[in-house]
Design a protein around this nucleic acid. Structure first.
Lengths: 86, 86
DNA sequence: TTTCATTTGTCCGTATGTATT
DNA sequence: AAATACATACGGACAAATGAA
C-alpha cells in the first residue's frame, strides 16, 4: 500500500482508504489502536495535517474513535451504526 | 461576529458557525459566492488551513458548493437535500 | 494562442494545548 | 516530572480551473 502524490486522489483520502481496508480485512483489529500519528507520518512520508484529515474522515464514518491521551481505536463493526460520537 | 481563540470551540468551527448564520439570515445570498479565502484570512486573522476546515464542513452540510477557479457558492435551501456533490 | 490574475484544495513542517500513562 | 498521543493552528507553497486581456 503506497501513497502516490501523482494521481488525482488526495493523499489524505488515499491514507483513509488504506486504513479502512486494513480495518475491513482485520489487519487492524477491533478495539485495538491504529498506528500512531507519528508512525503514519514516518511510514508514508506525509505531514501531520494530512494524517489528521484522513483520521477525521474515518472518525466521521464511525470506523475509529478517539480516546483522549491514548490513541485512535477501531470501532467494532457491530457498534458502527450509532454510538458516543453521534 | 468575532473569532475567539480563548474558548474551547475550535476557530474553524466558530468560522463555520458564523458563515452558516450569515447564510441562514440571508446576509450571504443564495447562488452568490461567499467571501474569498484571502478575505476570510485577513478579516479574521486566521490561517488558510483553518478557513479550509470551516468551508469543508459547510460543503459537507450542503450549505456551499465549489466551482473550481471561481469560488464557493451558497446552495439554495431548496437544493440542499441532494445534488451534484452527493 | 498565450499570458496573467484570481480562487480553491491540498500539503508541508512546526508549534502549542490538553489528556493519559 | 516526563513521555506519549491527538486536535488544533499557523504560514507558506503549489497545482488545477476559470476568466479576462
Amino acid at each position: 500500500m503506497e501513497i502516490d502524490h501523482g494521481i488525482d486522489t488526495p493523499v489524505w483520502r488515499q491514507l483513509a482508504d488504506i486504513l479502512r481496508a486494513q480495518i475491513d480485512s482485520g489487519e487492524l483489529q477491533e478495539r485495538r489502536a491504529i498506528p500512531t500519528k507519528k508512525v503514519l507520518i514516518e511510514r508514508h512520508g506525509i505531514s501531520g495535517d494530512t494524517v489528521d484529515k484522513a483520521t477525521a474522515q474515518l472518525r466521521e464514518e464511525g470506523y475509529i474513535r478517539l480516546v483522549f491521551g491514548r490513541g485512535l481505536f477501531v470501532v467494532p463493526a457491530a457498534d458502527r451504526g450509532a454510538k458516543s460520537g453521534e
